[in-house]
Design a protein around this nucleic acid. Structure first.
Ligand SMILES: [Zn+2]
Ligand SMILES: [Zn+2]
Ligand SMILES: [Zn+2]
Ligand SMILES: [Zn+2]
Lengths: 132, 132
DNA sequence: AACATTATGTAATAATATAACATTTAGAAG
DNA sequence: CTTCTAAATGTTATATTATTACATAATGTT
């Protein structure tokens, strides 16, 4: 069962925007879109984004400096994330594959380092773009 | 056998700097360090970095906006990269594990998308930092 | 009510990265 | 060696992404 986080006003505005967009959004594009709702400064956006990432409602796509709503209901915390990214249309989707996540969560090498978190980004062409 | 790329003057200066540093370096720190060698503008650095990434001599650590020399001689092209990152001391090392790379290179899901590239970043505490 | 924690507002600035344009260098082809 | 082309360089300006610093307000706990 997922803990309910009561989002604050700004967090809710920003989460709803990202969630409705259905794809990754960049911070300044978010800012532009929420200015009519009274959020005027970059910092207000980044603070909400930080919190939303922390509680796992959104994830950051590192290679794109963009943020996407979590598409995986079992993903309480952004500790183990995997995405597929189309290099042509920039479509992004979260990969939810239990074998993969099990494999990576249990991964360890000879360095003696125990990993508590990972982020994986796959790149390629999506179905649509491949058939063009 | 790895194709020898003849690095240009700027590419060589910048690769040597990153390689000797032994860790990840950020673009503007690189710029600062090579100004005595005549490289004066960000763009000169970014162009060399782009090329070095393209030919696999360095990789970008996306979550850190930093660049590290390839530590894996068999890694001609930056198509399949994995790193371990200490969240305390920020030490980064390239993971070269054939099982892992085989697993990820062959990974496919039900989306019908075939992946040509991936980047994986593991986070945790390194041995040193764990024992503190 | 008192206190601590979290969130907000605002301005300024830092850090990261690219656009546009002119010129030069290095290879390949004839 | 000359012509052509692709790659690399130099330079200025600017765009994009993110944080510091400081003041205030809202929320939750004891
Ligand atoms: Zn998720
Ligand atoms: Zn696509
Ligand atoms: Zn490598
Ligand atoms: Zn460490």
């Amino acid at each position: 069962m997922q803990k309910e986080h009561n989002l604050s006003k700004n967090q809710k505005i920003i989460f709803d925007l990202i969630d409705k967009s259905g794809g990754p959004m960049k911070a300044y594009s978010i800012l532009f879109n929420v200015q009519k709702k009274g959020i005027k400064a970059p910092l207000q956006v980044y603070r909400a984004l930080d919190k939303l990432v922390e509680i796992g409602k959104i994830h950051k796509i590192e290679s794109r400096n963009a943020f996407i709503a979590c598409q995986n209901s079992s993903c309480q915390i952004s500790k183990a994330t995997a995405f597929s990214i189309c290099e042509s249309c920039e479509n992004v989707s979260e990969i939810s594959n239990s074998k993969l996540s099990k494999y990576l969560s249990n991964f360890s090498d000879e360095s003696g380092m125990k990993y508590s978190k990972y982020n994986l980004e796959f790149f390629g062409l999506c179905k649509k773009c491949k058939s063009k």
